[in-house]
Design a protein around this nucleic acid. Structure first.
Length: 151
DNA sequence: GCCAACGTTGGC
DNA sequence: GCCAACGTTGGC
């Protein structure tokens, strides 16, 4: 089993939205590296931190679980949709998504807080200029953060 | 709203 | 294949 951190802008889709809908297709990923993580490295049961980005207090706000393996993102073929991609061929779809399900809300562990722990200093999210919306988390980082969230 | 960092596009 | 221009991300 692997661990992940997945970003979403809360004005777009928040942890509360996930709690309400229980599961969601994680659509709209239009970055090859992030797509490849979903396609090649995610398994059923993988755990992920839900991270609120581009908001007043960015940080980890909850936990979710991969509940469906990667399959074509339906919005890439919906004309006029925000995520429509005219270059994607239905016979060989360019963009994929997994489904995730709500596990729990946690207290907010802000980006500012994450920065203060030496144990977390290698997290991708802290690296300069990192914009990748899906990043792997090591077991050590996962356990360390979980402990913080349970305190 | 600003802007640095980064990914993608397209002309050559 | 290079690289300038452009668009996007996301913290601040």
């Amino acid at each position: 089993m692997k661990y992940w951190l997945m970003k979403s802008e809360p004005t777009d889709f928040s942890i509360d939205d996930l709690e309400k809908s229980k599961t969601i297709d994680w659509y709209g990923i239009r970055n090859y590296q992030a797509r490849n993580f979903m396609r090649d490295d995610m398994s059923l049961g993988d755990q992920a931190f839900f991270y609120h980005s581009n908001c007043k207090t960015p940080g980890i706000v909850g936990i979710m679980e991969v509940c469906k393996l990667a399959y074509p993102d339906k919005f890439q073929f919906v004309k006029n949709h925000k995520y429509f991609d005219p270059k994607s061929n239905p016979k060989n779809p360019r963009w994929l998504n997994v489904n995730v399900k709500f596990v729990k809300k946690t207290k907010l562990l802000g980006l500012k807080d994450i920065r203060t722990y030496n144990e977390l200093k290698n997290m991708k999210i802290l690296q300069r200029g990192n914009r990748l919306s899906i990043t792997p988390v090591t077991a050590e980082e996962w356990n360390f953060i979980n402990q913080l969230l349970n305190d």
